[in-house]
Design a protein around this nucleic acid. Structure first.
Lengths: 297, 297
DNA sequence: TAAAAATACTCCATAGGTATTTTAT
DNA sequence: ATAAAATACCTATGGAGTATTTTTA
């Protein structure tokens, strides 16, 4: 028994006339009669009571008609549902993001995703450190991470979003604040504010490495959890912070941003599980690439 | 697309291995691969991600699997449901009955039907006059009527249940009560109690006809609505009643039943709509025939 | 007698089989 | 090297067609 039998039976039951039903099904009448007979034989009971003049449903036929309609009504939407998933138009995606992109890239991404894929359920988690995101990705708690390129990339697929120039956030009344730009040597013996957990934040590790390579000593004055706190501390005159370019858009009274000219750019990457081919993810990466490109110009 | 595709896909999705799935489906592996590929082509998206070493479901595949399982799960029970209707094991039947059979035949029928067809919903309406039942049958308010053979049988199918001998119910202290049997002439000038509505009750019409044919005059002392009232009136000495045999089983103190020997038997019939071939009805008629037979012996 | 379902047969599309190749571990 | 999926090709069942007969209103 297959759907053909159900489709044919429904047509005959609705027309109550084999010839008309056959026409509706774009086929000849004899094979239709045959097929219905075959279905009845298979079921073991009559669905229709027929003379050459009148066709009518038996009680069993009425019941079977309802069930057949229900089954047929479930078949096409089944393909549609799965099709929408395949097209990445429905699904669920948890996106993590480092602090520096939380206030520039993430809101743009969220806005674009919600308007382009209204049926996709998104969860955004900002202010996550890169190693945190790597763990969360591996555990499945995160589907997409926006982070600094991490050390351990096993099982992950990384795509560069963009290179970000390094800047420093300086209190307005600091002697360096009048400069056009800053060199690493200018920061020698200055008090620095970094993200908490030297081993846990790629950014603070990066700052540490820069000083080590330059043979300079870094004085860590404060460790903070969030980027906004970092900048607030600078505004309060508690020290200087090295931040990636997008953070320099966080306009806070009392803070001046200057480019750090002699250090390499920091790479912002999108990380996913290497085996995750979810269509929603693919579309999210596409949107991300568009935003990154637009921002560079 | 037919159920074959769904069955095959579910098998592969559950085994995550084409060879094993093919074995489970009692077929070779190549046609299975072909069919799945064809299904994916038809849907326009991939259901499975496969290498020669590993087969896994895509996101769309997971969604389609759920829908496919739901559809397949709905297919077999569909036949079962209708099959039970075809076998007359589920359904609904409204049975009407004349007063004289309400207390003997109807309870037996109800008991037998409820035990043999527990899933059939029965409604029994006793104390219905025959013409009332004929109208109710035609309107569809009744599916089966147990009645005296009516005049107008157009569109109805009648089957005789049994012939019932006529008896008289006489007050204990009446002179006739000491007889062994009664003749119609004995009732000349006696006061009679009959069912209400001469034109509406076949039984009272029958009594009237008997007297007319015998050239006797019937004195209608009372008209009542229910058979139990009829007998109660007799017990109260308000007159004599002509009743069919089964009513004589209604033992009421002060009432004596005697056979009425020189009148024809009354025919009790089962009436249905001629075009009603409901399996439940067929089974009900079968049960009715059995009960009638058993009662005759 | 006329309209519609059933029967008789014919054909070809395709479901399924066998043999073999490709591919990834 | 091997296990498993894909490819190539073949066979035959049965779905659908045409022609005809049967049935009932």
């Amino acid at each position: 028994m297959d759907l053909r039998h159900l489709r044919y039976f429904v047509a005959v039951a609705e027309e109550l006339n084999f010839s008309r039903a056959a026409a509706r099904l774009h086929m000849a009448q004899p094979p239709l009669s045959q097929t219905i007979k075959q279905l009845e034989h298979e079921l073991g009971f009559a669905l229709l009571r027929r003379t050459t003049r009148r066709v009518e449903l038996t009680e069993a036929g009425k019941v079977y008609l309802e069930d057949a309609r229900a089954i047929l009504a479930a078949v096409d939407p089944a393909g549609d549902n799965a099709g929408r998933v395949a097209a990445g138009r429905v699904g669920r995606l948890v996106v993590g993001c480092v602090g520096s992109a939380t206030y520039s890239l993430l809101p743009q991404l969220a806005r674009r995703m919600r308007s382009e894929l209204p049926d996709v359920e998104f969860a955004f988690r900002g202010e996550m450190l890169s190693p945190e995101q790597v763990d969360a990705l591996r555990e499945g708690a995160l589907d997409l991470g926006i982070m600094r390129r991490p050390q351990d990339t096993a099982g992950l697929a990384l795509t560069t979003i963009r290179q970000e120039r390094m800047w420093v956030a300086i209190p307005q009344d600091h002697p360096l604040a009048v400069h056009e730009e800053v060199r690493l040597t200018d920061l020698h013996d200055e008090e620095l504010i970094v993200h908490a957990g030297a081993g846990r934040s790629v950014m603070s590790g990066l700052v540490q490495d820069m000083f080590d390579e330059a043979g300079l000593s870094a004085t860590i004055a404060h460790e903070v959890a969030e980027t906004s706190t970092l900048v607030t501390f600078v505004a309060g005159g508690l020290g200087i912070a090295v931040v990636p370019e997008p953070t320099a858009t966080l306009a806070v009274p009392g803070v001046v941003y200057l480019p750090l000219v002699d250090v390499p750019d920091s790479e912002l990457v999108a990380a996913t599980r290497a085996d995750d081919e979810s269509p929603v993810l693919v579309r999210a990466l596409g949107v991300l690439a568009e935003i990154a490109g637009g921002h560079d110009q």
